[in-house]
Amino acid sequence: MSGLSWLSCYLTTGKHMSFYLSFGTVLMLLAITAPVALAFGFGGAMAARSHFLPVSWIGKTYIAIVRGVPDIAFFLFFVIAFDQAIEWVRHKTLCPDWTDPIRQGNDFVVCDAAKAPLSTAAQWVHEVYGFSLAVFTFAIVFGAFAANVLYGAMRAVPRAQMETAEAYGMTHRQAFWRILVPQMWVYALPGLSNLWMVLIKATPLLFLLGVEDIVYWARELGGSKTAKFTDYPHGDWRMWYFLALLVFYLLFTKVSEVVLERLMVRLSHGQATQAGEKQRKAEA
């Protein structure tokens, strides 16, 4: 076999199928993380706005700490910290009569029943566990950024709108949910779309969290193979695999840009902003 038929056979091997599936992993991470991070951000922004001082402090500290500390250190730190926190809690509840200390010098020792996931668990459980940790880490970090954006957006809604709500006799809560929340999105969208771009570009860091993602497979498949171990020997092709990833991300960014632009037009409809006014005039 040679030429195109060789390549088409090569590109459809079982391992390549796993590679293609890992693109799904990345998309799934984005699909899960984005709403969860948005929820975290909403919670954080609401906390930061709270009239009850301690809650407001918690919200503001969350935003400040996560945004101030450098990038991937957070990813590397959180995954171990969460894992140990989960095992520690399980250890305390499941093995109360265990007397040895958990930190023995350089080791972190918990009883067998407290291991997360259990050492007897199936392979997929381990993978799902690792992936969930990653999602949670991403959500916490990006939640802080989203909280900052939403906090700003809530303050950007014109004061007159809230005053009108009060004049109509709405309670604080009603005004928040019926007036502030529907209107804040148009102010939040530029910040959120920026965040979405950053989130897309953060997905390769899954590799550092030990998930078998596209970076893992690109390294694995691209490395030189000798005829002894595979039917498809080739030299060091990692450069081409990473070029493919680069193109994938560029396309993804481009598509996102177009979609977000459309969304912005949709959201501006009927809003008391310059863009909304322009649309109104064009229609009239």
């Binding site: 897309i200 570009k201 953060a202 997905t203 390769p204 860091l205 590799f207 970076v215 690109a218 390294r219 691209g222 060091d236 990692r238 450069m239 990473f242 070029l243 990833l245 680069l246 991300y249 560029l250 960014t253 481009k254």
Partner: peptide, 22 residues
């Protein structure tokens, strides 16, 4: 500008390293 801003730095590092290796 589009290429370097539109793709993750992490992937750029990988690509650059393997490019230089070749």
């Amino acid at each position: 500008i589009f290429i370097f801003r539109g793709s993750p730095l992490f992937i750029q590092f990988f690509f650059a390293y393997f490019l230089f290796l070749s």
